[in-house]
Simulated scan of single mutants.
Amino acid sequence: MKNYDRTFKMNAVKLSYKRGKGQIASIERELGITASCLYRWRQDFEKFGAGSFCGTGYLKLTLDQSTITNLEKKVKDSELTLEILKRGSKHVALGKIMTKDFIEDNKNKFSILKMCSALGVSRTTYYRRKKQELSNTEIRINILKEEITSIFYEFKQICGCRKIAKELEKRGFKITDSHVASYMKVLGLYRKAKRKYKATTDSLHNHYVFPNVLNREFKVTDPSQVWVSDITYIQTMRGFLYLTIIMDLFDRKIIGWSLSDTMSTKATTLPAWEMAVNNRKITKELIFHSDRGTQYANKIFTKSLDSYKYVRRSMSRKQNHNDNAVSESFFSIFKRELIHRDKLLSRKQLRIEVYEYIENWYNKKRRHGFLGYKTIEEFDRINKLS
Protein backbone atom coordinates (compact mmCIF):
# COMPACT_ATOMS: atom_id res chain seq x y z
CA MET A 1 0.00 0.00 0.00
CA LYS A 2 1.40 3.39 -0.98
CA ASN A 3 2.17 5.87 1.81
CA TYR A 4 1.38 9.57 1.46
CA ASP A 5 2.95 12.29 3.58
CA ARG A 6 1.00 14.77 5.67
CA THR A 7 1.44 17.67 3.24
CA PHE A 8 0.05 15.63 0.33
CA LYS A 9 -3.03 14.56 2.32
CA MET A 10 -3.69 18.08 3.62
CA ASN A 11 -3.40 19.59 0.13
CA ALA A 12 -5.70 16.90 -1.32
CA VAL A 13 -8.39 17.61 1.30
CA LYS A 14 -8.15 21.38 0.79
CA LEU A 15 -8.42 20.88 -2.97
CA SER A 16 -11.59 18.78 -2.49
CA TYR A 17 -13.24 21.53 -0.42
CA LYS A 18 -12.20 24.15 -2.93
CA ARG A 19 -13.69 22.30 -5.92
CA GLY A 20 -16.71 20.85 -4.16
CA LYS A 21 -18.16 17.36 -3.68
CA GLY A 22 -19.04 16.98 -7.34
CA GLN A 23 -15.34 16.98 -8.24
CA ILE A 24 -14.20 14.30 -5.75
CA ALA A 25 -13.88 11.55 -8.38
CA SER A 26 -11.88 13.77 -10.74
CA ILE A 27 -9.54 14.80 -7.91
CA GLU A 28 -8.92 11.15 -7.03
CA ARG A 29 -8.04 10.38 -10.64
CA GLU A 30 -5.87 13.46 -10.91
CA LEU A 31 -3.87 12.63 -7.76
CA GLY A 32 -3.77 8.88 -8.44
CA ILE A 33 -5.40 7.85 -5.16
CA THR A 34 -8.08 5.25 -4.45
CA ALA A 35 -11.75 6.14 -4.14
CA SER A 36 -11.80 5.59 -0.38
CA CYS A 37 -8.62 7.52 0.47
CA LEU A 38 -9.96 11.04 0.03
CA TYR A 39 -13.17 10.15 1.88
CA ARG A 40 -11.19 8.91 4.90
CA TRP A 41 -8.87 11.91 4.81
CA ARG A 42 -11.83 14.31 4.75
CA GLN A 43 -13.39 12.56 7.75
CA ASP A 44 -10.09 12.76 9.63
CA PHE A 45 -9.69 16.46 8.79
CA GLU A 46 -13.26 17.30 9.84
CA LYS A 47 -12.66 15.69 13.22
CA PHE A 48 -9.10 16.77 14.02
CA GLY A 49 -8.46 19.78 11.77
CA ALA A 50 -4.79 20.87 11.93
CA GLY A 51 -4.06 17.83 14.10
CA SER A 52 -4.85 15.43 11.26
CA PHE A 53 -2.37 13.06 9.55
CA CYS A 54 0.20 13.32 12.33
CA GLY A 55 1.62 9.86 11.60
CA THR A 56 2.17 6.76 13.65
CA GLY A 57 3.40 7.24 17.21
CA TYR A 58 1.60 10.58 17.63
CA LEU A 59 -1.75 11.32 19.16
CA LYS A 60 -4.43 12.87 17.00
CA LEU A 61 -5.74 15.94 18.73
CA THR A 62 -8.69 18.15 17.98
CA LEU A 63 -8.13 21.90 17.89
CA ASP A 64 -9.33 22.22 21.49
CA GLN A 65 -7.18 19.31 22.63
CA SER A 66 -4.15 20.73 20.84
CA THR A 67 -4.73 24.14 22.46
CA ILE A 68 -5.03 22.52 25.90
CA THR A 69 -1.84 20.48 25.33
CA ASN A 70 0.11 23.58 24.27
CA LEU A 71 -1.18 25.50 27.27
CA GLU A 72 -0.19 22.62 29.56
CA LYS A 73 3.33 22.68 28.09
CA LYS A 74 3.55 26.44 28.66
CA VAL A 75 2.33 26.05 32.23
CA LYS A 76 4.88 23.30 32.88
CA ASP A 77 7.63 25.45 31.36
CA SER A 78 6.54 28.43 33.48
CA GLU A 79 6.54 26.28 36.61
CA LEU A 80 10.05 25.06 35.80
CA THR A 81 11.26 28.64 35.25
CA LEU A 82 9.65 29.72 38.54
CA GLU A 83 11.31 26.87 40.44
CA ILE A 84 14.74 27.83 39.01
CA LEU A 85 14.15 31.48 39.96
CA LYS A 86 13.09 30.56 43.51
CA ARG A 87 16.23 28.50 44.01
CA GLY A 88 18.70 30.61 42.05
CA SER A 89 17.69 34.29 42.38
CA LYS A 90 19.57 34.73 45.67
CA HIS A 91 22.72 33.37 44.01
CA VAL A 92 22.33 35.82 41.11
CA ALA A 93 22.14 38.66 43.63
CA LEU A 94 25.51 37.55 45.10
CA GLY A 95 27.35 37.83 41.79
CA LYS A 96 28.48 35.86 38.75
CA ILE A 97 30.66 33.34 40.57
CA MET A 98 27.82 32.33 42.89
CA THR A 99 25.50 32.10 39.88
CA LYS A 100 28.00 29.77 38.21
CA ASP A 101 28.16 27.64 41.36
CA PHE A 102 24.37 27.35 41.47
CA ILE A 103 24.23 26.21 37.83
CA GLU A 104 27.00 23.68 38.45
CA ASP A 105 25.26 22.29 41.55
CA ASN A 106 21.91 21.91 39.77
CA LYS A 107 22.89 20.77 36.28
CA ASN A 108 21.61 17.27 37.05
CA LYS A 109 18.15 18.67 37.91
CA PHE A 110 17.74 21.30 35.19
CA SER A 111 19.33 21.83 31.79
CA ILE A 112 22.14 24.41 31.67
CA LEU A 113 20.38 26.18 28.79
CA LYS A 114 17.15 26.47 30.79
CA MET A 115 18.93 27.79 33.90
CA CYS A 116 20.92 30.34 31.92
CA SER A 117 17.72 31.53 30.22
CA ALA A 118 15.71 31.75 33.46
CA LEU A 119 18.47 33.55 35.37
CA GLY A 120 19.38 35.91 32.51
CA VAL A 121 22.92 34.56 32.14
CA SER A 122 24.55 33.95 28.74
CA ARG A 123 26.19 30.57 28.20
CA THR A 124 29.46 32.35 27.33
CA THR A 125 29.44 34.06 30.73
CA TYR A 126 28.70 30.73 32.43
CA TYR A 127 31.68 29.03 30.78
CA ARG A 128 33.96 31.95 31.63
CA ARG A 129 32.92 31.75 35.27
CA LYS A 130 33.95 28.09 35.27
CA LYS A 131 37.61 28.95 34.85
CA GLN A 132 38.39 27.25 38.16
CA GLU A 133 37.56 23.99 36.33
CA LEU A 134 38.11 25.02 32.68
CA SER A 135 41.17 26.65 31.16
CA ASN A 136 40.83 29.58 28.79
CA THR A 137 41.63 27.18 25.94
CA GLU A 138 38.84 24.80 26.98
CA ILE A 139 36.37 27.66 27.22
CA ARG A 140 37.40 28.87 23.75
CA ILE A 141 36.96 25.36 22.32
CA ASN A 142 33.44 25.09 23.78
CA ILE A 143 32.48 28.43 22.27
CA LEU A 144 34.04 27.45 18.92
CA LYS A 145 32.09 24.18 18.83
CA GLU A 146 28.84 26.07 19.46
CA GLU A 147 29.65 28.59 16.70
CA ILE A 148 30.59 25.83 14.21
CA THR A 149 27.35 23.95 14.93
CA SER A 150 25.32 27.15 14.61
CA ILE A 151 26.92 28.08 11.25
CA PHE A 152 26.54 24.53 9.90
CA TYR A 153 22.77 24.48 10.44
CA GLU A 154 22.26 28.16 9.61
CA PHE A 155 23.83 27.51 6.19
CA LYS A 156 21.58 24.53 5.35
CA GLN A 157 24.07 21.76 6.29
CA ILE A 158 25.95 22.18 3.01
CA CYS A 159 29.08 24.13 4.04
CA GLY A 160 32.40 22.34 4.39
CA CYS A 161 35.27 23.19 6.74
CA ARG A 162 36.75 25.88 4.48
CA LYS A 163 33.59 27.98 4.18
CA ILE A 164 32.81 27.60 7.88
CA ALA A 165 36.36 28.77 8.70
CA LYS A 166 35.83 31.86 6.52
CA GLU A 167 32.51 32.60 8.26
CA LEU A 168 34.19 32.19 11.68
CA GLU A 169 36.90 34.60 10.55
CA LYS A 170 34.24 37.14 9.68
CA ARG A 171 32.78 36.69 13.18
CA GLY A 172 36.11 37.40 14.87
CA PHE A 173 37.62 33.92 15.30
CA LYS A 174 41.05 32.84 14.01
CA ILE A 175 41.04 29.17 13.05
CA THR A 176 42.41 26.99 10.24
CA ASP A 177 40.37 24.81 7.88
CA SER A 178 41.93 21.65 9.36
CA HIS A 179 40.90 22.59 12.90
CA VAL A 180 37.33 23.21 11.76
CA ALA A 181 37.36 19.83 10.00
CA SER A 182 38.50 18.15 13.24
CA TYR A 183 35.76 19.81 15.29
CA MET A 184 33.13 18.92 12.67
CA LYS A 185 34.19 15.28 12.81
CA VAL A 186 33.93 15.24 16.62
CA LEU A 187 30.51 16.96 16.45
CA GLY A 188 29.27 14.55 13.75
CA LEU A 189 28.62 17.34 11.22
CA TYR A 190 28.81 16.11 7.61
CA ARG A 191 27.63 18.17 4.67
CA LYS A 192 25.18 16.77 2.13
CA ALA A 193 26.75 14.68 -0.63
CA LYS A 194 26.63 15.46 -4.35
CA ARG A 195 24.44 13.43 -6.68
CA LYS A 196 24.56 12.96 -10.43
CA TYR A 197 21.79 14.25 -12.66
CA LYS A 198 20.85 14.00 -16.31
CA ALA A 199 21.32 16.75 -18.86
CA THR A 200 18.41 18.26 -20.78
CA THR A 201 20.24 19.34 -23.94
CA ASP A 202 18.83 18.35 -27.33
CA SER A 203 21.49 19.31 -29.88
CA LEU A 204 20.27 17.04 -32.69
CA HIS A 205 18.90 19.78 -34.94
CA ASN A 206 19.86 22.08 -37.80
CA HIS A 207 18.95 25.42 -36.23
CA TYR A 208 21.18 28.44 -35.53
CA VAL A 209 24.53 27.10 -34.28
CA PHE A 210 27.51 29.27 -33.30
CA PRO A 211 31.21 28.46 -32.70
CA ASN A 212 32.70 28.05 -29.23
CA VAL A 213 33.99 31.64 -28.91
CA LEU A 214 34.31 31.43 -25.12
CA ASN A 215 36.68 28.46 -25.38
CA ARG A 216 36.55 27.77 -21.62
CA GLU A 217 37.90 31.20 -20.65
CA PHE A 218 35.76 31.39 -17.50
CA LYS A 219 37.70 34.18 -15.74
CA VAL A 220 36.70 37.69 -16.78
CA THR A 221 37.67 41.16 -15.56
CA ASP A 222 34.43 43.11 -15.95
CA PRO A 223 30.69 42.65 -15.41
CA SER A 224 28.57 41.96 -18.52
CA GLN A 225 31.62 40.66 -20.35
CA VAL A 226 30.49 37.02 -20.45
CA TRP A 227 27.09 35.56 -19.54
CA VAL A 228 26.56 31.79 -19.51
CA SER A 229 23.25 29.95 -19.53
CA ASP A 230 21.85 26.45 -19.12
CA ILE A 231 18.63 24.53 -18.37
CA THR A 232 17.94 21.66 -15.97
CA TYR A 233 14.85 19.73 -14.89
CA ILE A 234 13.45 19.30 -11.36
CA GLN A 235 11.03 16.55 -10.37
CA THR A 236 7.98 17.54 -8.31
CA MET A 237 5.03 15.66 -6.83
CA ARG A 238 3.29 16.13 -10.18
CA GLY A 239 5.70 16.02 -13.12
CA PHE A 240 8.71 18.21 -13.85
CA LEU A 241 9.59 21.90 -13.77
CA TYR A 242 12.44 23.35 -15.85
CA LEU A 243 14.92 25.88 -14.46
CA THR A 244 16.76 28.19 -16.86
CA ILE A 245 19.57 30.39 -15.50
CA ILE A 246 21.80 33.13 -16.86
CA MET A 247 24.98 33.83 -14.85
CA ASP A 248 27.47 36.69 -15.13
CA LEU A 249 30.94 35.11 -14.96
CA PHE A 250 32.39 38.24 -13.34
CA ASP A 251 30.75 37.68 -9.93
CA ARG A 252 28.92 34.37 -10.61
CA LYS A 253 25.60 36.05 -9.85
CA ILE A 254 22.39 34.60 -11.31
CA ILE A 255 21.12 37.71 -13.08
CA GLY A 256 18.26 36.02 -14.96
CA TRP A 257 16.26 32.86 -14.41
CA SER A 258 12.95 31.20 -15.24
CA LEU A 259 11.09 28.23 -13.73
CA SER A 260 8.62 26.80 -16.24
CA ASP A 261 6.19 23.94 -16.83
CA THR A 262 7.40 23.35 -20.39
CA MET A 263 10.66 23.43 -22.36
CA SER A 264 9.44 25.97 -24.91
CA THR A 265 11.63 28.96 -25.71
CA LYS A 266 8.93 31.40 -24.59
CA ALA A 267 8.82 29.71 -21.17
CA THR A 268 12.57 29.12 -20.63
CA THR A 269 15.29 31.16 -22.31
CA LEU A 270 13.32 34.26 -23.33
CA PRO A 271 12.03 35.25 -19.84
CA ALA A 272 15.45 34.47 -18.33
CA TRP A 273 17.10 36.73 -20.94
CA GLU A 274 14.58 39.53 -20.33
CA MET A 275 15.27 39.40 -16.58
CA ALA A 276 19.03 39.44 -17.18
CA VAL A 277 19.02 42.52 -19.42
CA ASN A 278 16.78 44.31 -16.92
CA ASN A 279 19.19 43.51 -14.08
CA ARG A 280 22.44 44.31 -15.90
CA LYS A 281 23.10 46.77 -18.70
CA ILE A 282 25.03 45.77 -21.83
CA THR A 283 27.33 48.68 -22.67
CA LYS A 284 30.10 46.88 -24.61
CA GLU A 285 30.67 43.52 -26.28
CA LEU A 286 29.03 40.70 -24.37
CA ILE A 287 29.67 37.02 -25.08
CA PHE A 288 26.53 34.98 -24.44
CA HIS A 289 27.49 31.31 -24.10
CA SER A 290 25.15 28.30 -23.96
CA ASP A 291 24.85 24.74 -25.19
CA ARG A 292 23.28 23.87 -28.56
CA GLY A 293 19.84 23.08 -27.17
CA THR A 294 16.86 24.06 -29.31
CA GLN A 295 15.82 26.65 -26.72
CA TYR A 296 18.98 28.61 -27.60
CA ALA A 297 19.41 27.71 -31.29
CA ASN A 298 16.00 28.75 -32.61
CA LYS A 299 14.94 31.79 -34.62
CA ILE A 300 12.93 33.52 -31.85
CA PHE A 301 15.72 33.52 -29.28
CA THR A 302 18.41 34.36 -31.85
CA LYS A 303 16.38 37.32 -33.09
CA SER A 304 15.94 38.59 -29.52
CA LEU A 305 19.72 38.53 -28.90
CA ASP A 306 20.47 40.04 -32.31
CA SER A 307 18.43 43.09 -31.34
CA TYR A 308 21.32 44.01 -28.99
CA LYS A 309 24.23 45.19 -31.14
CA TYR A 310 26.93 44.28 -28.59
CA VAL A 311 25.92 40.63 -28.09
CA ARG A 312 28.17 37.94 -29.56
CA ARG A 313 26.96 34.32 -29.52
CA SER A 314 29.01 31.34 -28.36
CA MET A 315 27.99 27.68 -28.04
CA SER A 316 29.50 24.53 -26.56
CA ARG A 317 30.70 21.85 -28.90
CA LYS A 318 28.54 18.75 -29.37
CA GLN A 319 28.49 16.35 -26.42
CA ASN A 320 31.01 18.51 -24.53
CA HIS A 321 29.59 19.66 -21.19
CA ASN A 322 32.94 21.04 -20.00
CA ASP A 323 32.58 23.91 -22.49
CA ASN A 324 29.82 25.21 -20.18
CA ALA A 325 31.34 23.94 -16.93
CA VAL A 326 30.38 26.93 -14.75
CA SER A 327 26.66 26.51 -15.48
CA GLU A 328 26.94 22.77 -14.92
CA SER A 329 28.70 23.45 -11.61
CA PHE A 330 25.90 25.77 -10.49
CA PHE A 331 23.27 23.09 -11.11
CA SER A 332 25.36 20.56 -9.22
CA ILE A 333 25.50 22.91 -6.21
CA PHE A 334 21.82 23.83 -6.59
CA LYS A 335 20.66 20.21 -6.58
CA ARG A 336 22.88 19.23 -3.67
CA GLU A 337 21.87 22.19 -1.51
CA LEU A 338 18.17 22.39 -2.31
CA ILE A 339 16.63 19.60 -4.37
CA HIS A 340 18.00 16.34 -2.96
CA ARG A 341 15.68 15.75 -0.04
CA ASP A 342 13.69 12.83 1.27
CA LYS A 343 10.44 13.87 -0.36
CA LEU A 344 9.19 15.64 -3.47
CA LEU A 345 7.65 19.11 -3.26
CA SER A 346 4.50 20.44 -4.88
CA ARG A 347 5.00 22.80 -7.82
CA LYS A 348 3.84 25.80 -5.78
CA GLN A 349 6.16 25.00 -2.89
CA LEU A 350 9.09 24.37 -5.23
CA ARG A 351 8.62 27.77 -6.90
CA ILE A 352 8.89 29.42 -3.47
CA GLU A 353 11.95 27.34 -2.55
CA VAL A 354 13.76 28.12 -5.83
CA TYR A 355 13.10 31.86 -5.45
CA GLU A 356 14.41 31.81 -1.86
CA TYR A 357 17.48 29.81 -2.89
CA ILE A 358 18.54 31.98 -5.84
CA GLU A 359 17.55 35.46 -4.67
CA ASN A 360 18.10 35.25 -0.89
CA TRP A 361 20.70 32.50 -0.45
CA TYR A 362 22.91 32.03 -3.53
CA ASN A 363 23.00 35.69 -4.66
CA LYS A 364 23.30 37.15 -1.13
CA LYS A 365 24.45 34.86 1.70
CA ARG A 366 26.34 31.92 0.20
CA ARG A 367 30.16 32.13 0.32
CA HIS A 368 31.83 31.32 -3.01
CA GLY A 369 35.30 29.82 -3.30
CA PHE A 370 35.80 31.52 -6.68
CA LEU A 371 35.26 34.92 -5.00
CA GLY A 372 37.77 34.24 -2.22
CA TYR A 373 34.99 32.96 0.03
CA LYS A 374 33.15 36.25 -0.10
CA THR A 375 29.42 36.48 -0.70
CA ILE A 376 28.36 37.95 -4.05
CA GLU A 377 27.07 41.04 -2.22
CA GLU A 378 30.44 41.54 -0.48
CA PHE A 379 32.31 41.03 -3.78
CA ASP A 380 30.03 43.47 -5.62
CA ARG A 381 30.44 46.14 -2.93
CA ILE A 382 34.23 45.90 -3.26
CA ASN A 383 33.88 46.25 -7.04
CA LYS A 384 31.27 49.01 -6.71
CA LEU A 385 28.46 47.07 -8.38
CA SER A 386 25.97 47.56 -5.53
Rank of each mutant, 00 (worst) to 15 (best):
Y4A: 01
N320Y: 02
R19E: 12
N322I: 07
S203R: 01
Y183V: 13
L94P: 00
A199C: 12
K166P: 01
N11W: 08
H368S: 08
R128N: 14
K96G: 13
G51D: 08
K281P: 00
Y39D: 09
E79S: 10
R123K: 15
E359G: 10
D177I: 01
I27D: 00
I141D: 08
E154P: 13
I245V: 15
L80A: 10
G22W: 09
I139L: 01
V226I: 11
R252F: 09
E378H: 08
E274W: 05
F334N: 03
A199Q: 09
H321K: 02
K145E: 15
G188W: 12
K131Q: 09
A93Y: 00
N11L: 14
H368P: 02
C37H: 06
A325Q: 04
V228Y: 00
T262C: 05
N106C: 14
W41K: 10
L214G: 12
D105K: 13
H91E: 09
F48N: 08
C54A: 14
H91A: 15
V354I: 11
A325F: 01
K266F: 02
A267S: 15
S386M: 07
G20I: 14
K384F: 06
D248P: 09
M98H: 06
C159E: 08
S135G: 06
I148G: 10
S346I: 01
K364Q: 14
R191M: 09
K107C: 10
Q235D: 03
D105L: 11
S52V: 00
K318L: 10
S26Q: 10
L59F: 05
E30Q: 13
M184Q: 05
E79G: 02
S66A: 11
F288Q: 00
S122K: 04
N206F: 15
Y58T: 03
I103D: 13
K60P: 00
F45D: 01
